[in-house]
Computed example of a mutant assay.
Amino acid sequence: MGKLTARAIAERALEIGDAEGLDAVTIRRLATDLGVTPMALYWHYKNKEQLLVGMADHLIAGFVPEPADERPWREQLRDLLEGLVRALRAHPCAKGVFEQIDQTLVPNFLAVWDRALGLARSAGFTAEECCLISKYLLQSAIAIADAPAHIQTDEWVRARRLSLESLPAGKYPHLVDMAGPLARGMNSALYDTFGVDLILAGIEALAARR
């Protein structure tokens, strides 16, 4: 292969993490896959903690927030949230990566975070409120993107629906009534859109009270 780069290492690490889980991501495994010695990887990442930070930075690298413009803050905040969800959704291991690192060490994440703070500020929130809004916003993006992407078998869905429908209707009326959609799960597009709408509606409602 050509010259080994931090980007190539992070890309391969994400591929392994997505397919096999983060426990499978080791320096030795990466060295074998990339056809180099472990020492060659240590030149870029001295330990797995640094590697995870590099993976986090790389998976967000494809999503770069647009510069602030004249549009209402609501539209810009929606673009930010939807873009982050898309970037994270592309990697099933994203949630695990971010749970294991100090997010302040990830340059691309800091750019998104800073933009979220700025947009909240432009909506009229106090500094303390901006901090809370950005925290909930970014954590929500990670949670939305972590929605199960696999499709359950018809047998699993049927068993799940029957299990919910067999609950005492007098005690759990809504679980029984909605057993079908609960068992089937949601269309991924609806899941993402509704999740983003729900979060932004809350922020807009708070802003309207200013």
Results as ranks from 00 to 15, higher is better:
residue 94 A to L: 05
residue 126 T to Y: 01
residue 69 D to R: 04
residue 79 D to A: 03
residue 133 I to Y: 12
residue 126 T to M: 05
residue 107 P to C: 06
residue 105 L to N: 05
residue 96 G to H: 10
residue 119 L to R: 00
residue 116 A to H: 00
residue 127 A to E: 15
residue 100 Q to T: 05
residue 105 L to G: 02
residue 126 T to C: 04
residue 123 A to V: 05
residue 106 V to M: 12
residue 120 A to D: 04
residue 134 S to R: 00
residue 132 L to I: 08
residue 117 L to G: 09
residue 107 P to F: 08
residue 72 P to M: 07
residue 75 E to F: 08
residue 109 F to A: 00
residue 129 E to G: 02
residue 81 L to W: 06
residue 86 R to Y: 09
residue 68 A to Y: 06
residue 73 W to I: 01
residue 90 A to D: 13
residue 136 Y to L: 14
residue 85 V to M: 08
residue 91 H to A: 10
residue 90 A to V: 02
residue 126 T to L: 06
residue 80 L to T: 05
residue 99 E to C: 08
residue 127 A to D: 15
residue 78 R to K: 09
residue 74 R to I: 02
residue 129 E to V: 05
residue 102 D to V: 07
residue 125 F to E: 10
residue 119 L to E: 01
residue 90 A to L: 10
residue 130 C to S: 15
residue 127 A to L: 12
residue 103 Q to C: 05
residue 127 A to F: 07
residue 123 A to H: 07
residue 119 L to S: 00
residue 120 A to P: 05
residue 90 A to T: 03
residue 112 V to C: 13
residue 75 E to W: 04
residue 111 A to P: 03
residue 100 Q to R: 15
residue 115 R to V: 03
residue 110 L to T: 00
residue 107 P to K: 06
residue 113 W to S: 13
residue 128 E to D: 14
residue 104 T to P: 01
residue 94 A to N: 11
residue 95 K to E: 13
residue 99 E to L: 14
residue 98 F to K: 10
residue 83 G to S: 07
residue 76 Q to K: 10
residue 110 L to W: 00
residue 84 L to M: 15
residue 122 S to K: 12
residue 119 L to G: 05
residue 91 H to V: 09
residue 100 Q to W: 03
residue 83 G to P: 08
residue 76 Q to T: 02
residue 119 L to C: 08
residue 77 L to R: 13
residue 73 W to G: 01
residue 68 A to N: 03
residue 122 S to L: 09
residue 131 C to V: 04
residue 117 L to V: 08
residue 102 D to P: 08
residue 67 P to H: 05
residue 86 R to W: 07
residue 101 I to Y: 12
residue 120 A to T: 11
residue 80 L to S: 09
residue 125 F to Y: 13
residue 109 F to E: 00
residue 67 P to F: 06
residue 104 T to C: 01
residue 89 R to K: 12
residue 114 D to R: 14
residue 100 Q to H: 12
residue 121 R to K: 13
residue 125 F to L: 07
residue 85 V to S: 12
residue 112 V to W: 14
residue 127 A to C: 01
residue 83 G to A: 06
residue 130 C to L: 04
residue 98 F to S: 05
residue 98 F to G: 03
residue 125 F to S: 04
residue 92 P to T: 09
residue 106 V to I: 13
residue 76 Q to L: 06
residue 83 G to L: 08
residue 110 L to H: 01
residue 117 L to T: 02
residue 135 K to W: 12
residue 84 L to N: 12
residue 135 K to F: 14
residue 81 L to R: 05
residue 75 E to Q: 13
residue 103 Q to M: 09
residue 84 L to I: 11
residue 73 W to L: 01
residue 127 A to I: 09
residue 127 A to T: 11
residue 114 D to F: 04
residue 74 R to L: 08
residue 129 E to Q: 15
residue 78 R to M: 04
residue 133 I to E: 02
residue 130 C to P: 09
residue 136 Y to F: 13
residue 73 W to Q: 12
residue 128 E to R: 10
residue 100 Q to V: 01
residue 118 G to I: 00
residue 98 F to C: 04
residue 118 G to V: 00
residue 135 K to E: 14
residue 120 A to S: 15
